[in-house]
């Protein structure tokens, strides 16, 4: 066991420390005051361009401005964001679902994204490149160290250290877009907006366009499927499962699958529904009573 072995160990520890420290401190926790109220920014944070686009579509749909093929002809209200305006403008030229590829929509998304980077909620390209460089360095260092196994009398611990560097470097290569602060803000948003989770089939009528947009921002295409199945189907949105928005949110799944629907016009009331006291039976004619 020579000095080279110890030198390798020390350098490995330093490289590991730097990589981990940079990973944690790349953006650091967001300032406590950081909170997002804009559904579009929340969508960009949660799901990038598709997330921001879902938020736009849900908000514009809830305002009655768009359908799956484009504009409905309803007058454009004041107070739309630049991205929403870009989506509306794109709807004049293409199907609603395709507006995500419109250059102006992408440009406006970049503005939203840049703001999030400035707030420390998303990592910028330079940061990501630097992080990847550090990860590659660690990975290469580990790989090189592992080659020492070919050298007689190399202690086993050195091989183990090299392996740790390889594995850590490999995982550090995948640089998440969200910073730790961004993830914290997003978790807070999802917690405080649990009522907008698709499992609850939130009423867009009650929560209005901002609630609809926030629901889609935080929970993706699944939110649009839950609130406006026909619209989601016509848009060809990915299913809730495929959208990957199912984890880590309100799981009160037993709560009233049928509750979004009205009691129905035929029956006074029924017992079959799980989410309402007047139930899910709906069909009249049996003379059922009302709860």
């Amino acid at each position: 066991m020579g000095i080279l072995h110890y030198a390798y160990l020390v350098i490995s520890v330093v490289l590991l420390a730097v990589t981990v420290q940079r990973l944690r401190g790349r953006s650091g926790p967001a300032p406590a005051a950081t909170s997002l109220t804009s559904p579009i920014a929340a969508g960009a944070l949660a799901g990038g361009l598709p997330g921001a686009h879902y938020a736009c579509l849900a908000g514009l749909r809830a305002r009655g401005l768009i359908d799956a093929v484009g504009l409905t002809g309803a007058p454009e209200p004041a107070g739309l964001t630049a991205l929403e305006k870009a989506v509306l403008a794109a709807c004049r030229r293409m199907d609603t679902a395709a507006t995500v590829y419109d250059p102006e929509v992408m440009r406006q998304y970049d503005v939203v994204r840049d703001n999030l980077v400035r707030q420390g909620l998303l990592s910028g390209p330079a940061e990501r490149d630097a992080a990847r460089t550090r990860a590659l360095t660690l990975f290469g260092w580990g790989f090189g160290g592992a080659a020492f196994i070919l050298v007689p009398e190399t202690p086993f611990w050195m091989f183990a250290v090299a392996l740790v560097c390889v594995v850590a470097g490999f995982f550090a290569l995948r640089v998440p877009e969200q910073t730790p602060g961004g993830r914290a803000v997003l978790n807070d948003l999802r917690r405080s907006n649990r009522h907008l989770h698709p499992a609850s089939a939130p009423s867009w009528t009650v929560y209005g366009y901002s609630g609809a947009a926030m629901s889609a921002a935080l929970f993706g295409a699944a939110a649009i499927w839950a609130a406006d199945h026909e619209f989601a189907d016509e848009l060809g949105l990915p299913s809730a499962k495929a959208a990957g928005y199912n984890s880590g949110m309100y799981s009160g799944g037993g709560c009233g699958g049928s509750s979004g629907s009205a009691c129905g016009s035929g029956s006074s009331s029924c017992s079959g529904g799980s989410g309402s006291s007047c139930g899910g039976g709906g069909g009249g004619g049996c003379g059922g009573g009302g709860g």
Binding site: H195, A201, P202, S203, V206, Y207, G211, G252, G256, G260
Partner: peptide, 10 residues
């Protein structure tokens, strides 16, 4: 007001 999932936030 009756608690129903679609209006839980309200």
């Amino acid at each position: 007001l009756g608690w129903r999932p679609p209006i839980a936030g309200f």
